[in-house]
């Protein structure tokens, strides 16, 4: 596996060094025709035919490049890249898509379940996936990515500027977020959304992202056993949406973020909430001891914009206690009780 990671990094480095990669002319947002890279043409004969004319009924090939690229952005990378076989018009359009979804890992997860003990087979399949990711990153040319998703996250490299970073390992509950990653000089400055699902990530990397991503608006951590003692604090945080759910060892979670409008904390651990003047919606699970419930209510009563509170309690008899306290809230329109 170590080899594969090295391979991944090396090939990425090569691309970053090549001048072709950052050609401004090739930016699809510049509304220019994307020029076919002469090196990539199969041979010189078909160059004569390029862009001369399509079949009259071929509306899709007639659409401007940026629109075709936009359409291809909704396909998986494999499917988008396969369109290069359609005709010379399509040969490199897929390389400019603004979303890179490398979801080819579904088969891999199935394989892991089926052949748990055949380590070699699984490793060879994993290598194949890494090669494919490398392959895509080598060819890909968009300057900004709206989304970069690897369902088998190994190493994130500096692919121009990433706006949304999502780690989603639904079928693998053993993946630990590589903490080395965040100490590198990767440029995360344009990151707006950061999502960890089923990835064990500890407070270190998350607080790194909070410190180094001035535009970060959305942070979601879902199912991480490693996370404890997290502090989402900072007077200059742009964070608007925070969800920390199913992280069972949080105790405590401290949040102090002036721009936050939505907070979801599905945890029965202790919450310390302060300085969130714009908070509109809160969704929390609470323990049913009176002290923590009173504490929560008095903390929430300071947030004057709060409109919706969803509360999941363990026992119903606490409702009365709650309503007694909740009147201090300005407006409160939603409750949910389980059991």
């Amino acid at each position: 596996m170590a080899d594969s990671i090295q391979e991944f990094t090396d090939s990425r480095q090569r691309i970053m060094n090549s001048s072709r990669f950052m050609s401004i002319d090739s930016c699809p947002m510049c509304r220019k025709r994307i020029r076919i890279d002469s090196k990539r043409q199969p041979n010189e004969f078909c160059a004569k035919k390029r862009y001369i004319g399509y079949n009259k009924d071929d509306r899709i090939s007639e659409l401007p490049d940026d629109i075709v690229v936009h359409i291809l952005s909704f396909l998986t990378v494999e499917e988008a890249a396969r369109t290069s076989v359609l005709s010379s018009r399509w040969i490199n359009l897929w390389e400019y898509t603004t979303r890179l979804k490398l979801d080819g890992d579904e088969g891999l997860a199935k394989l892991r379940r089926q052949y748990m003990f055949r380590r070699k087979l699984i490793e060879s399949e994993e290598r194949k996936y890494v090669r494919r990711v490398n392959r895509v990153l080598q060819s890909h040319k968009a300057l900004t990515l709206k989304e970069f998703r690897i369902r088998f996250a190994l190493q994130i490299t500096d692919h121009a500027q990433v706006e949304r970073l999502e780690f989603d390992l639904q079928d693998d509950d053993n993946y630990h977020f590589p903490e080395k990653l965040v100490s590198t000089s990767v440029n995360f400055k344009s990151l707006r959304a950061l999502i960890f699902t089923n990835v064990h990530v500890s407070k270190g990397p998350i607080e790194f992202f909070l410190r180094n991503c001035p535009l970060l608006e959305k942070l979601i951590v879902c199912y991480s056993a490693n996370l404890s003692n997290l502090q989402v604090c900072g007077s200059s945080l742009a964070l608007k949406h925070l969800e920390i759910v199913y992280c069972y060892h949080l105790n405590p979670l401290t949040v102090s973020a002036p721009s936050l409008t939505y907070l979801k904390a599905a945890t029965y651990d202790r919450l310390v909430l302060e300085n969130m003047p714009r908070l509109v919606e809160v969704d929390v699970n609470r323990t049913d001891d009176d002290v923590s419930l009173r504490g929560l209510c008095s903390a929430l009563s300071c947030f004057s914009q709060l409109e919706t509170l969803r509360l999941t309690l363990l026992r119903k008899e606490k409702v009365r206690l709650l309503t007694a306290n909740i009147f201090s809230l300005r407006r409160c329109i939603g409750f949910l009780f389980t059991n």
């Binding site: 199969p42 078909c46 399509y54 071929d58 509306r59 090939s61 494999e78 396969r82 076989v85 018009r89």
Partner: peptide, 26 residues
């Protein structure tokens, strides 16, 4: 979509070969 294939068979084979990874599992 009525897309006309303007590749020669050799060109098409070359493009396919280059994008072989996209056909894995198809």
């Amino acid at each position: 979509f009525g897309i006309e294939n303007d590749y020669t068979p050799e060109e098409e084979a070359a493009v396919k070969e280059e994008h072989k990874w996209t056909f894995e599992g198809v």
